[in-house]
Design a protein around this nucleic acid. Structure first.
Length: 279
DNA sequence: AGGCAGGCTTTTA
DNA sequence: TAAAAGCCTGCC
């Protein structure tokens, strides 16, 4: 079995990424270990006590697939370094508390469907729906440990699902949005390669043109599926945070083009804080 | 035109 | 029972 050790001289915390709400198909398989599915690949990654990471892939697969997926070319420590502690103690505390989060470079189609499914639901429910969708419409393979691993269904596979199968995914009223997105992808209206060349603003416009995609979901797709690090999704948690911490507005100018990264710290920090303090 | 109330499926805490 | 990484429709 191929394995490799990786040392990362930057923020990289598997648990914080897994819990960050940007990905719904990371599965915790051990104390410090996760199984990650990305396009047609499956990776087991764990953190060793000495701080290295153990990956069950070879150097070549790492360099062509996972280095990009984990966004390892970006220096998150220096992005955090933009925060002035005295000027914005709240943001400093959030970034310090959630240090280790990175913005993954995920597949645009999977990201679009996942965040359409996410609306008005909490993360456990989203994960269940996505898992069921993959189980019922994706392609089954064995991972390197002989466990089942389902690909994310392509648009055609979604369109060919029976009404019963779709109902089993518990999408509720969102099922028609998912079908519309599949239709758009199948007919070339949703074309990730073409959309990748658009400006942030034009991309947002194209995304919100999709049925069932408003500003919040479009921002998530732009940030996680197209790696537009300035996209700033505003959900219920961010809304509370903005109201409490930035009554005069968030200083977007100062943090361009990484507002999305700071959004991520704030989101995670507030959600975790909320679990203890009841907002 | 642009803002707002109400409705929507289901799960989670 | 309220809230959950919201959006659509219809009304004003």
């Amino acid at each position: 079995m191929r394995e490799m050790l990786l040392s990362v001289d930057d923020d990289f915390d598997l648990k914080r990424i897994a819990d960050s709400g940007q990905c719904f198909r990371w599965e915790r398989t051990g104390e410090e270990e996760y199984r990650i599915i990305h396009t047609d690949r499956c990776l087991y990654i764990s953190r060793c006590p000495d701080g290295h990471f153990l990956l069950d892939c070879g150097e070549e697969e790492f360099n062509t697939v996972w280095r990009e997926y984990f966004d390892l070319e970006t220096d998150y420590r220096s992005i955090r370094g933009r925060i002035e502690k005295e000027r914005d103690p709240f943001l400093y505390a959030a970034a310090e508390g959630e240090k280790g989060i990175r913005i993954l470079r995920q597949d645009p189609w999977e990201t679009a469907v996942s965040f359409i499914i996410s609306q008005n639901r909490n993360i456990p429910a989203i994960k269940r729906s996505v898992a069921e969708l993959c189980r019922l419409a994706g392609t089954e393979r064995q991972d390197k440990r002989g466990k089942s691993c389902y690909s994310f269904p392509d648009p055609e596979a979604v369109l060919s699902m029976s009404a019963e199968a779709l109902a089993q995914c518990r999408l509720g009223y969102r099922d028609k949005y998912v079908l519309a997105a599949a239709e758009a992808a199948d007919t070339g209206v949703f074309d990730p390669e073409e959309m990748a060349s658009l400006s942030d603003c034009a991309l947002m416009g194209r995304l919100t043109d999709l049925y069932g995609v408003g500003p919040k979901v479009a921002s998530c797709i732009a940030l996680y599926g197209f790696h537009r690090t300035d996209a700033f999704p505003v959900d219920t948690w961010i809304r509370k945070a903005m109201k409490n911490e930035y009554p005069d507005g968030f200083p977007f100018q100062r943090f361009r083009p990484y507002n999305g990264v700071f959004q991520q710290y704030i989101f995670a920090y507030y959600r975790n804080k909320g679990a203890q303090m009841q907002y």
